[in-house]
Simulated scan of single mutants.
Amino acid sequence: MTSVTDTPQPRATRMADAPAFPRMVAANGISIHVDQVGQGPDVLLIGGAGDTVESWQLQLDGLAARYRLTAFDNRGAGRTAMPGGAVTVETMADDAAGVLRALGIPSAHVAGFSGGSIIAQELALRHPDMVRSLVLQSTWPVMDPYLRSWGLFVRWLVDVAPSERAFLEGFFLDIYTARAHNDGTVDQFVEEALAFPHKQAPTDLQAFLDAFLDHDTSERLPRIAAPALVLAGGRDSTSRPELCRAVAELIPDARFEVMEEEAHQPFQEVPHEWNARVDAFWREVEARG
C-alpha cells in the first residue's frame, strides 16, 4: 500500500545485452512481476504488506551504480496475482528463491522491511546458500501481543475505512514519522498510492497479514550463518526497537543499529542515510570475500 512512485527506473543503468525489465518470471508455480536495475553484486529487495517494486524506488535509483538490484511484487500485491490456497511466509520465501533461480542468480545480498524482513529471515533459513547477507529493517522474531493487535487492527481497518484515502491516512500514522506527516511527505505518498494502477485487493492484504500473525522464527534464527544487519526506527510504534534487537541477539554476530529519529520505513523517508548504511555493510561483506 506504500508505493513511493510509479516512475520507471533509469534504463541507462541496465546492461545493453540484459533481458528487458520489468517483466514477469515463472517462479514457485506462479508468475511474479520483477524489475532489475544496475550492475555489480546482486541484491534482492523484499517488500512488506501490499508493497510492490515501487516501494524500493529510492534504492533502485540510489544504489544502481554499485549493485545489480532485483525487486519483485509479492504474491497478491501489484502485478503478481494471488493464487488460491493459504498464504504462508514459507511459501513467500520460496517465491523469493524462485525469483533468484529464474534470473540465474545463485546468491544475493537480501534486504527486507516489515513483513518482507520476515520473508527474508525465512529465505535465509530455507535457502541459506542463496543469501549472501541480510538487511532486516523493522523486523521481529515473533509478534508480541502489541504488534499482533496492531496487525489485527490493520486487518479490519481495510474493511471499515470509509474510503481508500481514509485507510491510507490511518494506516500511515504508524508507518511514517510525525515529521513526514507534517511536512507533506505523507500526503505525497497517499496521492501516489491512490494513483497507482495495480491496487491490492483488501482480501489479499488480509491474507498477507494473516501469514505473519503467528509466525515464529525465534528458535531457528540462531541457524542463520549469513552476515546480518538489523535496523530499527527509534520512533517505530509497531516493530519497535526491542523487537528488532531480539532478532539481532538471536542471529549469530548480527549487527544492530537504531535510527533514533525514524519510524517504520526510513528507507523512504531518509533514503540517502539508509542507502549509505546498507552500502557500507554490503561493502564490508564483499571485502571479506
Rank of each mutant, 00 (worst) to 15 (best):
P128S: 13
G116Q: 08
A81G: 15
D129H: 13
A120W: 04
I118W: 00
A111H: 03
P141G: 14
V131L: 11
V87C: 13
D94A: 07
E122Q: 15
A108R: 06
V131W: 07
S138P: 01
M130L: 13
T91E: 12
G104K: 09
S117T: 07
M143L: 15
A120Q: 05
T139Y: 05
T91I: 06
G116W: 06
H109W: 09
M143R: 01
R75M: 07
I105R: 07
M82R: 14
L103M: 06
G85C: 04
M82W: 04
A93C: 08
A111P: 02
R79K: 15
E122W: 03
L136G: 04
L125R: 06
V87I: 14
V87F: 12
T139R: 03
V142M: 00
T88F: 00
A111E: 13
L134K: 07
T91M: 11
W140V: 12
W140T: 14
E90A: 12
N74R: 09
G116C: 08
T80N: 07
L125Y: 12
R132C: 10
T91R: 14
P128R: 08
P128D: 11
V110S: 10
R75N: 11
P83Q: 07
A120S: 15
H127A: 13
D95R: 01
Q121M: 07
M143C: 11
A81T: 15
G85E: 04
V99D: 11
A124W: 01
N74E: 09
P128C: 12
N74Q: 14
D94M: 01
P106F: 05
H109F: 10
M82A: 15
M130W: 01
L136P: 06
R75V: 10
T88G: 00
P141F: 00
G116Y: 06
L103F: 03
L103H: 04
A102Q: 09
L103W: 03
V99P: 12
L134R: 09
Q121Y: 07
I119E: 01
A108P: 08
S117K: 03
E122P: 04
A97T: 08
A86I: 06
H109T: 12
A86G: 05
A108K: 08
G115K: 00
A124Q: 01
G76M: 02
T80G: 08
M92F: 02
L100Q: 10
H127M: 07
L100N: 11
E90T: 13
L103Y: 04
D144Q: 01
P106Y: 03
T139F: 04
L103R: 05
R126W: 02
D95F: 01
P83F: 04
R132T: 15
A86V: 13
V99E: 06
L125C: 11
V142R: 02
A111I: 14
R79A: 11
A93R: 00
L134F: 10
A86Q: 15
G78P: 13
I105S: 09
S107E: 14
T91G: 15
R101V: 09
V110H: 05
T80R: 08
Q121A: 06
D95H: 02
D95V: 02
L134Y: 09
S117P: 08
M82V: 02
Q121V: 05
